[in-house]
């Protein structure tokens, strides 16, 4: 009588068996497989975009939060002496560290220098009529004082408006909230589609290979030997799909940053390619594991051993 262990061989022979059979069934189910891969790619690409979007918004809001400056716009026809009074008042407010007056004469010079060539005299073009208001640049001791100081200054007569970054922060936070909500919704929908499609591909493979599975069971193949090719198939679908997503995400983010960042230099966009790279790698890992888990679960349902 032949003992059971006899004839057992090094693992690599089984691996070649698994790979051959996985390729065979991927080929047999190629349309279902292609649909799974495409959906996986889309799902993980969207996931990647949302992660990068959220990270960038976080970086921007951090920058805004750390901004201690505000700009106080004085009403255009206010006397200079009155402006000086406002300046003194603001200087004496608590937690204010610095106040700088930018009179409208200086303001127009700035604009002239920054936006026109040296031959143009903007003031002359406007017939000596300067439409700009005076403004104050106010610095406070810490980010937590910005709002309070701004409110006090805003209450003064002759003050038109106080601009400070934290105003935008609220809008940004609202944007982020909606982005997260919609992003999560879209991603969950796509992940459900991924689960359905990969699960269905595995189910079709199980049905297509039903006779083969029966024979394997009756000759005494171990349960894991029968399962492995199916798990591999799911892993491969998840891997290929998320690999596509990660590559497209990585390349398009780098191209985007290269081309867009210089036009919006005031935005602290994430230019560190290491972060995109890590997120791309994370996406590949999640995609592969998801493919494996989905095929494992659908094997539990469709493969009776």
């Amino acid at each position: 009588m032949l003992a059971i262990g006899e004839g057992a061989t090094p693992v690599f022979r089984s691996i070649s068996y698994y790979i051959r059979h996985t390729l065979r069934s991927l080929n047999r189910n190629r349309w279902m497989g292609a649909a799974s891969i495409a959906t996986t790619a889309i799902a993980f690409f969207i996931l990647g975009i949302f992660i990068m979007g959220v990270l960038n918004i976080q970086a921007i809001s951090k920058k805004i939060e750390s901004n201690l400056e505000m700009v106080v716009w004085i009403e255009a026809d206010t006397e200079r002496s009155e402006v000086e009074n406002i300046k003194t008042y603001v200087e004496n407010l608590g937690n204010v560290t610095q106040v700088k007056l930018v009179p409208k004469e200086e303001g127009i010079k700035e604009i002239n220098k920054n936006y026109f060539n040296s031959e143009t005299d903007l003031l002359k073009t406007l017939n000596g009529d300067n439409p700009l208001p005076d403004y104050l640049v106010v610095k406070v001791a810490g980010p937590e004082f910005v709002k309070d100081v701004a409110t006090k200054i805003n209450a003064l007569s002759n003050v038109d408006k106080v601009d400070y970054g934290q105003e935008y922060l609220d809008k940004l936070m609202a944007l982020m909230y909606w982005m997260r909500l919609i992003g999560a919704g879209v991603i969950i929908l796509f992940l459900l589609a991924v689960i359905f499609l990969i699960g269905n591909t595995i189910r079709l493979t199980v049905y297509a290979r039903n006779k083969e599975i029966q024979i394997m069971r009756f000759v005494g193949a171990s349960n894991w030997f029968i399962r492995w090719p199916f798990l591999l198939e799911g892993l491969v679908l998840g891997l290929v799909g998320s690999l596509i997503a990660a590559s497209v995400l990585y390349i398009s983010y780098i191209v985007l940053i290269d081309n867009v960042a210089k036009y919006v230099s005031f935005l602290p966009l994430i230019k560190d390619t290491l972060i995109v790279r890590n997120i791309s790698l994370l996406i590949v890992a999640i995609g592969t594991v998801l493919g494996g888990i989905v095929s494992f679960l659908s094997l539990g349902r469709y493969l009776r051993l």
Partner: peptide, 12 residues
């Protein structure tokens, strides 16, 4: 095939 799933070596 039956021998393969029982993990016999190629030579066997």
């Amino acid at each position: 095939f039956a021998m393969e799933v029982l993990k016999f070596s190629r030579k066997e």
